[in-house]
Simulated assay, not measured.
Amino acid sequence: MEPVIEVTELSFLYKDGTRALDKCSLTIERGTKVAILGPNGSGKSTLLLHLNGIHVVQQGTVKVLEETVSPSNEQWLRSKVGLVFQDPDDQIFSGTVWEDVAFGPVNQGLRGEELEARVRQALRFVKMEQYSRKVPYHLSYGQKKRVAIAGVLAMNPDIIVLDEPVAFLDPAGKRALFELLDQLNRQGKTIVAATHNVDIAARWAHKIIILSEGRVLAQGTPALLTDKTIVQEAELELPAVTEIFAPFPDLCKPKTPVTVEEAQNIIKQLVTNSSRGRFVRREKGASYNGWESH
Rank of each mutant, 00 (worst) to 15 (best):
N265G: 01
I267N: 08
C252Q: 13
V260R: 07
A246K: 03
L225K: 10
D227F: 05
V260W: 05
Q232W: 09
K253G: 14
E233N: 12
T226Q: 06
K268D: 10
I267Y: 09
P222W: 06
T226D: 05
K255M: 01
T226Y: 05
L224T: 11
E262R: 11
P222Q: 09
N265F: 00
T229G: 10
I244F: 04
E233W: 06
L225V: 11
N265W: 00
D250I: 07
K255G: 00
T229H: 14
T226E: 05
I244C: 07
C252L: 14
Q269A: 07
P239S: 00
K253M: 08
Q269G: 13
G220F: 04
P257H: 02
V271I: 15
Q232N: 13
G220M: 04
F245V: 02
T242V: 04
T229Y: 08
P249Q: 00
E262S: 14
K253D: 12
P247D: 05
L238R: 01
T259P: 04
A223E: 07
L238E: 01
V258T: 08
E233K: 15
P247C: 05
F245L: 00
T256V: 07
K228T: 04
I267E: 09
A246I: 02
I267R: 15
K228S: 10
T221A: 14
D227G: 07
